[in-house]
């Protein structure tokens, strides 16, 4: 068994071995292999730029691992601005004694996830810290994407628009929670972790009147809708019985007292689209496996600006508030 040692982060021979045996091997591309102090990039249009750090625990979970998440997370942030993901950096902070083969598994997942959007890792860094300084491994990725649409913004949503969701809610949060709490399920509930760019690209290319995209990560659907209602000064009205939630997620919510619309997702996005393009947008989404169950969950009104209203199937209604307090740390 090979283990990561402090010397792997020391900048000497062992560091070089780690870089060539692992990172160059799997992230292999011309810009990276030049091994300069900084990558030199060419981009034609306006760019989108984002960064995210990944600290999820456990690092391996059903439906993914920290590496897959580190790519999908940053690539999705770019995609949500209508930007084609192009270049990523990746920084690893690794605890001394971490298994080399697990690191390789993580790096292979990252390579596979990159292939879905065509983005490349063009620079990176590796630090190894003494045992006990951190829990196994943290990864930071930063990304640049080329804007394919300048119309996408959380400020653009208007009365009458439709609100769509790409798939069922809460899988990532429920999966991590179940793993963390040792809840054994008689099912194969897994994280929804996925690169969303292919569907976003198709929606942009279809020239639909899309107002905004946002992936429902930490804070879940409740956070996205409240942020949109605030930014665009509109009221978003959601029908509770239209919210797609699988039985396993419902069950975990029941047992532990959570609500699926507060749970984190890592491959689920919300789309605000002009009502006349709702059907066309759903058709586009249904072409992709990860969004084949996309549905409309509500509409935008002027009823109570800056608020989100949840309608129950029996005719009562209430505000859907932002999740508060300590829901769950280290979800991503």
């Amino acid at each position: 068994m090979k283990y990561i040692q402090l010397s792997h982060g020391g900048g000497g021979e062992e560091t070089n071995d780690l870089i060539s045996d692992l990172f160059y091997k799997y992230f292999n591309n011309e810009i990276l292999l030049k091994a300069e102090d900084a990558a030199v990039l060419e981009v034609e249009n306006k760019i989108a730029f984002t960064t995210d750090s990944f600290t999820v625990s456990p690092i391996f979970f059903k439906g993914g691992n920290i590496g897959k998440l580190a790519i999908a997370g940053t690539v999705n942030d770019l995609a949500m601005m209508g930007a084609k993901p192009l270049y990523l950096s990746s920084s690893f902070i690794i605890e001394e004694g971490f298994s080399f083969s697990e690191l390789e598994t993580i790096v292979i997942s990252m390579r596979d996830e990159l292939a879905k959007s065509g983005a490349k890792i063009v620079c990176g860094d590796t630090k190894v810290v003494p045992k006990g300084s951190l829990d196994q491994i943290f990864i930071n990725t930063t990304g640049i994407g080329e804007l394919k649409s300048t119309e996408i913004s959380a400020h653009n949503i208007k009365e009458g628009d439709s609100i769509l969701i790409s798939r069922d809610l809460g899988r990532h949060g429920a999966t991590i929670l179940a793993a963390r709490e040792g809840i054994e399920l008689v099912s194969d509930l897994g994280s929804d972790c996925e690169t969303l760019w292919p569907a976003v690209e198709a929606l942009v290319e279809a020239k639909l009147n899309v107002k905004a995209f946002r992936d429902a990560t930490r804070g879940g659907l409740a956070a996205v809708l409240n942020e949109w209602a605030q930014s665009s000064e509109v009221c978003i009205e959601i029908n509770e019985n239209l919210l797609p939630i699988c039985d396993e997620v419902k069950g975990i919510c029941e047992i532990l007292g959570f609500d699926a619309y507060d749970f984190a997702n890592e491959g689920t996005f919300i789309i605000a689209v002009a009502a006349e393009d709702e059907e066309k947008a759903l058709e586009v989404l249904k072409r992709f496996d990860f969004s084949s169950n996309a549905v409309c969950i509500g509409t935008v009104s002027s009823e109570r600006p800056k608020k989100v209203i949840l309608h129950s199937p029996w005719g009562s209604r209430r505000y859907l508030e932002l999740p508060k307090g300590e829901l769950l740390p280290r979800i991503c």
Binding site: D247, K250, G251, E254, S312, W314
Partner: peptide, 15 residues
């Protein structure tokens, strides 16, 4: 299944 324990107690027409 777990949902059998609550589904009918949230049935809109009954409410």
């Amino acid at each position: 299944q777990l949902k059998d324990l609550y589904d009918s107690f949230r049935e809109p027409n009954t409410i």
